[in-house]
C-alpha cells in the first residue's frame, strides 16, 4: 500500500476535520535513520516494532490506525498484526490524551498509603470528570495504573515520562501548577 497524495484521508474521530496522515518514517528523515539503526540491533525487522511504536507516540502523542499501517509497512507486517501488538500493551495510546497524562498507582502497597485519596485529588483539581476522560481544556487526563515499581515512595505518580514520588492529596495543587500549560 502506498500513501500517495490522493490516498483517502482517514477520519480519526477526534478534533473535527480529518487531515491526511503525514508519515513519520519518510525516506531520508531522521526518524527513518533511527529506525534503520534500531533494526540492525536485531536479527529480525519485526523486533523493532515496540521501539517504532514508541517513536510514533513520541512524535504524535498517540498511535492512529494510519500510523499502525505505516509501521507495519516499515517492518513487513500487516496493520492488523501491529494493532494486535498495540492493544496488548497499556502504554500505547490509541486515542489522543491530555498534554499532561497523569498516572496514579493504586495497587495494594500504594493503596495502604492512601493512593485512592491522591486519585480523588487529581480528579478534583484537574477538572477531569472521570478517570480516562480528558479535561475540557485538553490539558489533563488522569488514570489509575498498576504498580509503577516505586512502592517504597508511595504514592508514585507518573506524569508523561517522569515519576513524582511520595505524592499526597495536599501536594496535588502545587504539582499541577508546576506543570504549566
Amino acid at each position: 500500500m502506498s500513501h500517495g497524495p490522493s490516498a483517502p484521508a482517514h477520519a480519526h474521530g477526534h478534533g473535527g476535520e480529518a487531515a491526511p496522515y503525514v508519515p513519520v518514517f519518510t525516506e531520508g528523515s531522521a526518524r527513518r535513520r533511527e529506525l534503520d539503526d534500531l533494526i540492525s540491533r536485531y536479527p529480525s525487522r519485526r523486533a523493532a516494532l515496540l521501539p517504532a511504536l514508541w517513536m510514533v507516540q513520541q512524535d504524535r502523542g498517540w498511535i492512529s490506525e494510519d500510523a499502525m499501517r505505516e509501521v507495519g509497512e516499515q517492518l513487513d507486517c500487516t496493520a492488523a498484526y501491529v494493532k494486535g501488538v498495540v492493544t496488548f500493551y497499556t502504554m500505547y495510546h490509541q486515542h489522543p490524551v491530555g498534554r499532561h497524562f497523569i498516572q496514579v498507582c493504586t495497587t495494594s502497597p500504594c493503596l495502604c498509603a492512601g493512593a485512592d485519596d491522591v486519585v480523588k485529588a487529581f480528579l478534583e483539581h484537574t477538572g477531569c470528570k472521570e478517570l480516562g476522560l480528558t479535561s475540557p481544556d485538553g490539558k489533563y487526563t488522569v488514570i489509575e495504573v498498576e504498580c509503577l515499581g516505586a512502592c517504597g515512595f508511595a504514592t508514585p505518580v507518573q506524569i508523561n515520562e517522569d515519576y513524582v514520588e511520595c505524592v499526597t492529596p495536599e501536594k496535588v495543587p502545587g504539582l499541577l501548577a508546576a506543570l504549566g500549560d
Partner: peptide, 27 residues
C-alpha cells in the same frame, strides 16, 4: 548490549513473554 523498552505489561517479566515482547509480538 542494547536496551529494549517495554510498553506496559506485568506479564512481560515472565521470561518467555519477555522474549516474545523483544521479538515484536504480544507478550
Amino acid at each position: 548490549i542494547w536496551v529494549h523498552k517495554g510498553a506496559g505489561a506485568y506479564i512481560c517479566g515472565e521470561e518467555t513473554a519477555l522474549m516474545n515482547s523483544i521479538e515484536g509480538k504480544r507478550g
